[in-house]
Design a protein around this nucleic acid. Sequence first.
DNA 1: CTGAAAGCGCTTACAG
DNA 2: CTGAAAGCGCTTACAG
Lengths: 332, 332
Amino acid sequence: LVTSRDVARAAGVSQATVSRVLAGSPRVTDATRARVLAALTEVGYVPNAAARTMRTRRTGSIGVVVARITNPFYPELLTAFSAKLDSVGRRMVLWDSSGPGEQSAAAAAREGVVDGLVFTTAAPESRPLIAALARQAAIVLVNRSLPDLACDQLTSDNATGGERIAAYFAANGHTRCGMICGPAGFSTSDEREAGFRAGLRAAGLELHDEAFVRGEYSHADGHAAMRQLLALDPPPTAVFCANDLIAMGALDAARALGVRVPDDAWVVGYDDIPMAAWEAFDLTTVRQPVTEIADRAVDRLLGRIADAALPPLHHRFPADVIVRRSTAHTAA
Amino acid sequence: LVTSRDVARAAGVSQATVSRVLAGSPRVTDATRARVLAALTEVGYVPNAAARTMRTRRTGSIGVVVARITNPFYPELLTAFSAKLDSVGRRMVLWDSSGPGEQSAAAAAREGVVDGLVFTTAAPESRPLIAALARQAAIVLVNRSLPDLACDQLTSDNATGGERIAAYFAANGHTRCGMICGPAGFSTSDEREAGFRAGLRAAGLELHDEAFVRGEYSHADGHAAMRQLLALDPPPTAVFCANDLIAMGALDAARALGVRVPDDAWVVGYDDIPMAAWEAFDLTTVRQPVTEIADRAVDRLLGRIADAALPPLHHRFPADVIVRRSTAHTAA
DNA sequence: CTGAAAGCGCTTACAG
DNA sequence: CTGAAAGCGCTTACAG
């Protein structure tokens, strides 16, 4: 192994001077700097990350916790985080929130493996863990929030998104609306549902109990739920799904039953994952601005790492409706 | 910050003894151990990862380099890696191979940020980097290989996969076959193509130049390529796509043009991503056993970390054909 | 501008 | 079985 001591020897300077050159300190003669630089490549020096971390208490790594990556929204978000972290010179350590991912991530933050942590899938069960961690480590919640928790939280304006879809349905004459919701307790589910209900109410409509079905955020559950809705008599003519994956399952169910979309039923999702634009789905949905989300989340996390005393930030990204052919092609 | 010294003070023992208890050394009295354990929780001790790494030269982190995560195959693979790494008590550091990901990963390996590295998207351009790195760090190539490189490589038996699809087409009476291939130089593209051509040849068929179209591994390029193939006179009646994403683009193109699948044209992909089973696609494809791939890759990487002198392993996973309704529903 | 030195928090021979 | 000590490879005051 080549250490800074070896470089110092080759350059005929002290080890401290090598460190200074590496750190870009201005308190070094050009001549000295040149000799050190030459020695650096001559001996093939590579700095040791652990030693540097031990001194600086900074690793340059940021942890990200995401859900089972089988929902394409998370890979999207992940790509955005990866690009952003790269651009600010940080590495990404990844945990899957299914299984012990959150615990491992929390432990990593406490042990100083990462400088901070982004949670994208905070669930009701994770509240105690995250609440405790927030006191000792830099963390930011993204996508799913934990209401009332005093830490940085950046999420889609889910309620407004749901409201807009309700208004869109109502404005186009739908009176029998349905919803396929995600798991209760997740802020995304709860807020989208509440917004949708509020929007219907504002239009003088209501969401009948039989027309509200709940499942996991999966294609399979969307599929099953849509079959259930289409079996109603009369079936709903417009269905709001709590995310795109559910909506794609719903579309596939309609396809299988010979129900035409949008002629017989409108289907709407949430997230605007890339596949939503494919001909196979052509799905009207509410956009989540993943690039902005990742950018702001990372900026905020770095800010918090630098200053733990910052007041908690709660930010909502606007919920824009993207109209495609799974609804009649009129503006929302 | 609470250090092992604080624990020692609280337990009335030396700092070394605390270390021994933490390391599970048998050379500690039960009584002493109990006192230390009590002190541990009393003072809220958390070990410092950097200090431990500095001594042991082990971080417990493994790096994984994957492609733009917009191809659902990579999230699949990633989930499998995440689960496996978790089960062996390792963390995952992730890089996106688009952009400077490979360089950053290589640097991280050299600086000791990770104990080893998995590359899933080795490209021809990355050969020098990977070849140099293989001499100083533990790395394993997965999915895409770099032929002739002396390092561990675990890949699908792409050639046999292509061959089987050709045989399947031929056995079902197709004489005008087409292929939509990925970028030249990627082992996955090259090998699947070579296998497909060999299989056709073995059946007395040939792949006409107009019926061979190349593009990126994307839905959009699959879409465009399929339009091109369907514009031929006569068009091919069976098309092998170098991966599922391309095949889904091809299916969407067929859908848009009113070409019925499989009645007018068969479409086959590669990878067997979960979406391939959805009704929207119902895609015949060649399976990649992602769980086994991740398991074996990690086991091998840990083996190599433990013993750098191991001879390079080149392993091929069997290429099983999964028949669905994008081809007539007869066994392959 | 440069060097000698301390110290980050551990692990692990070395004594006893 | 336990403690005192060395040392992993850096960064950064402290002198000069």
